[in-house]
């Protein structure tokens, strides 16, 4: 695969690249999968929170956290943890509040990942 990662992206995803032993092709391939899968999981999570199904929401948030943590262990991943904690505590209000923050942060992260996977489209 042709190497497309810019210096700026290398800096942004330095921790992720370090974990992947510097394998940029692997980062891109994982990014493509995350771009496919994360929106589906996010929609599921949003629907579960809106329906007050907090036990399922905790499980789905756990899955989203795993999916996005390849690229960032701070930011939205920390917010997802707040959702997990709130969902386990049966705190719907906190889940709803954290979700709006999480959705924004996750979409920002996905846009950055898209920049790595498909630079032409961004």
């Amino acid at each position: 695969m042709e190497n497309k990662v810019t210096e700026e992206q290398r800096t942004r995803f330095a921790e992720a690249l370090q974990r992947l032993a510097g394998d940029e092709d692997l980062l891109i391939a994982m990014g493509a999968m995350v771009l496919d899968d994360a929106p589906v999981v996010m929609a599921e999570l949003q629907q579960q929170i809106q329906a007050g199904q907090l036990s399922q929401a905790a499980s789905t948030a756990h899955k989203l956290k795993g999916l996005l943590s390849t690229f960032d262990v701070g930011g939205c991943v920390l917010t997802i943890q707040q959702i997990i904690t709130a969902a386990k505590a049966d705190d719907l209000a906190e889940c709803v509040q954290s979700w709006s923050k999480c959705e924004r942060e996750a979409n920002e992260l996905l846009a950055e990942v898209r920049g790595v996977v498909d630079p032409v489209s961004t």
């Binding site: 999968m33 899955k63 999916l67 390849t70």
Partner: peptide
Amino acid sequence: DDDRTILLLAQKA
């Protein structure tokens, strides 16, 4: 694992 990224990473690693 149900996360495809993990399966890919494990394959490569």
